[in-house]
Design a protein around this nucleic acid. Structure first.
Lengths: 222, 222
DNA sequence: GTGTCTATCTCGGGC
DNA sequence: GCCCGAGGTAGACAC
């Protein structure tokens, strides 16, 4: 990884045009061809960047980064270089392991589907439809079908997704009355409104409770 | 900005939990409190990070970053430091200027709504509904209402969004016949099909043409 | 290759 | 403060 601290200006052309006036910034050139220009503020995001695969050409005080496919181009002009160092790193860095993403929520709910609705039992995970798999397919005490869409954050988008699946599932006469449930750690207000207006149910679930690691704060069905 | 190149391991707890085993990486501590851990590959994204406002505590070989509000915590353990340098930068770096984003398109179309449809005149931008604002609300020569959804890239999602708005707008008897138009720089084939199947219109617009900087390539209404 | 969907999305604007 | 939508979203995975 090459780290250049320099007074520089940057111009991007491609999906849009952007210009960055002269200032002191960090330019990061990764071994995989990524180029990132970071300021000392501004948080997570680089001001300008190019993701691999790229072609990097250095000519005098100008670094030109081109996307191998496409029109995107980044032109960095170095006005004053304060530091320019290269560090060799393990190219294939050990991978990041995560717990608590949507997939983990799905596993936990598959094990305890009653949190999606009273008396629910799992028929299968990733129930296939012709436009993609529904997260969970369940049946209730009266043997009615219920499609469950799982999200960490339940947004309008999730309601749309569930609606699309239901539209397909209900084409089968045996499942014409299939209900829909959106299960999420947080269900946003507008998603609640939209879900209810479409006759769909929503429920907030807590991963730790699902796993039996914490007591439920409230009685949800009462 | 402080740049540490070190063999390190990282643990994140908060919205989820994540662990990064020992490897050689770059740790970036920005003046605004941002902390980013980057590998020499992996493109745009840091492996781990914390956005401001944060509290950074350094004790021996451990750097602990806490979100000022909330539970989020990042714990970086330094096993071997190869480099540790600090560069003073202009804190308030000159701002990035962009042109060609959706907002620019909206301004240009509000100024020249006839590109959305013959005889259209603007009633207002950001017309409110209970699930969010419609980009443009127009009326045609016969005083009919038209809701316009503007996107840089017109996808199925944009058609869904426009459909949702129309669903709401048409609840008002005075606007029961409200039409819908998707205006975008590029309208994807699948979005065209879906729009047409729902009785919606789509139109491709060119920002330079809207601004009168370029001649239209084709007659759109003919 | 395109399409779809997740993300510790991040970030900015509005109320 | 929360909520919502845009993003050069990026990145992963299925088809």
């Amino acid at each position: 990884m090459r780290l250049i601290v320099a007074r520089c200006s940057v111009a991007y052309t491609g999906r849009l045009t952007a210009h960055l006036p002269e200032a002191l910034r960090l330019i990061m050139l990764k071994a995989d061809g990524s180029v990132l220009v970071h300021a000392d503020a501004g948080g997570y995001k680089p001001l300008n960047w190019m993701t691999p695969p790229t072609a990097v050409i250095e000519e005098g005080e100008t670094i030109t980064v081109r996307k191998v496919k496409g029109e995107d181009q980044l032109e960095i002009t170095l006005h004053e270089v304060l530091s320019d160092v290269t560090h060799t790193m393990d190219f294939d860095a050990a991978r990041l392991s995560k717990d608590g993403v949507e997939a983990d929520l799905q596993v936990a709910l598959a094990d305890a589907p009653h949190w999606c609705g009273e008396g629910f039992r799992l028929v299968r995970r990733e129930w296939p439809t012709d436009i993609g798999p529904v997260d969970l397919m369940c049946r209730d005490e009266a043997d009615g079908w219920i499609a469950v869409e799982i999200k960490r954050i339940g947004t309008i988008e999730a309601v749309e997704q569930l609606s699309r699946y239901l539209e397909r599932i209900r084409l089968d006469p045996a499942k014409a009355d299939c209900r829909g449930v959106l299960a999420a750690t947080i269900v946003k207000p507008q998603a609640r409104v939209l879900a209810e207006s479409r006759g769909l149910t929503w429920v907030e679930v807590d991963l730790a409770v699902l796993r039996g690691e914490r007591e439920p704060a409230l009685t949800l069905f009462g």
